[in-house]
């Protein structure tokens, strides 16, 4: 059986909120290492990969591999009933029909309990190859969100060019063009404001802004976002969570003109 207790419901609320517009039905794969999720969007352009390590829960117990097929719209409805600060416990039997969610208020004696019916989801897992990326950029997640939103006002797509000069986000649209360039930057007082660019060779790729703006819904999960790029491979957008847990998005590039 599965029993996983999260100190704050907020974490799951934010994760589900960040992915629910991208994927609708998905398996939460539970085993003794934690709870994982991998799903593609309907157009097969983007892939979300979530890992909530067992260390992110206290306690965490999962004796066997259990796949919880959950509709994220249903999960969102139930998670809305949880306060951000509530303690959240997920429970399921070994061959479950439902997943049980318990929300406990730390301040009051209120305990709420919900069951969500599970779905049988036949989901194919994709093998994600280990990649030595040509460029890795760590930057404030709010900055990345702002750049994507600003450029989306002009164009459907953005080119991300990484060179010794820095990283340049550029777009061209009907009304004109725009770009934002960031250079490496260290803020001793506020490390979450750092921009770090690790480059082994120059990269230039084009991506759909609609997807990137969608990924940025995860911004509240982490002060920093990591972008990993290599020519001709999907972009990796990673939001690191505590205890080596993570929320990753992969986005296939667009073909250049």
């Amino acid at each position: 059986m599965l029993e996983a207790r999260l100190e704050q419901a907020n974490l799951l609320k934010k994760v589900v909120d960040a992915i629910k517009d991208l994927v609708q039905d998905c398996n939460f794969d539970c085993n003794d290492s934690g709870i994982a999720l991998q799903a593609m969007d309907n157009s097969h352009v983007a892939l979300v990969s979530m890992m909530l390590k067992s260390e992110s829960f206290s306690p965490f117990r999962c004796d066997r591999n259990i796949a919880l097929g959950i509709n994220l719209t249903s999960l969102t409805k139930v998670l809305r009933a949880a306060q951000n600060e509530d303690i959240l416990t997920l429970k399921a039997e070994d061959a479950p029909d439902v997943v049980n969610l318990v929300f406990e208020s730390a301040e009051s004696d209120r305990i709420s309990e919900y069951d969500i019916k599970l779905m049988d989801i036949d989901q194919e897992h994709l093998g994600i190859p280990e990649t030595e990326y040509a460029a890795t950029i760590s930057m404030p997640s709010a900055e990345f969100q702002r750049i994507c939103r600003d450029l989306m006002a002009l164009s459907e797509s953005v080119s991300i060019e990484c060179s010794k000069e820095g990283v340049k986000f550029a777009c061209q649209g009907d009304i004109g063009s725009g770009s934002v360039t960031l250079r490496s930057h260290t803020n001793v007082d506020k490390p979450e404001m750092n921009v770090e660019i690790d480059l082994t060779e120059p990269v230039s790729l084009t991506f759909s802004l609609k997807y990137l703006v969608g990924f940025c819904k995860a911004s509240s999960l982490s002060g920093q976002v990591k972008l990993c790029l290599s020519n001709e491979v999907p972009l990796l957008v990673e939001y690191a969570l505590a205890n080596n847990s993570y929320l990753r998005f992969y986005l296939a590039p667009k073909i250049g003109d």
């Binding site: 593609m40 157009s43 097969h44 352009v45 983007a46 892939l47 194919e124 897992h125 994709l126 093998g127 994600i128 190859p129 459907e156 759909s208 609609k210 491979v233 999907p234 992969y250 986005l251 296939a252 590039p253 667009k254 073909i255």
Partner: peptide, 14 residues
């Protein structure tokens, strides 16, 4: 999406 590659072109089904 026009000119958009698929993620399946990069990651293989297990």
């Amino acid at each position: 999406v026009k000119n958009q590659k698929s993620i399946l072109g990069f990651f293989q089904k297990k």
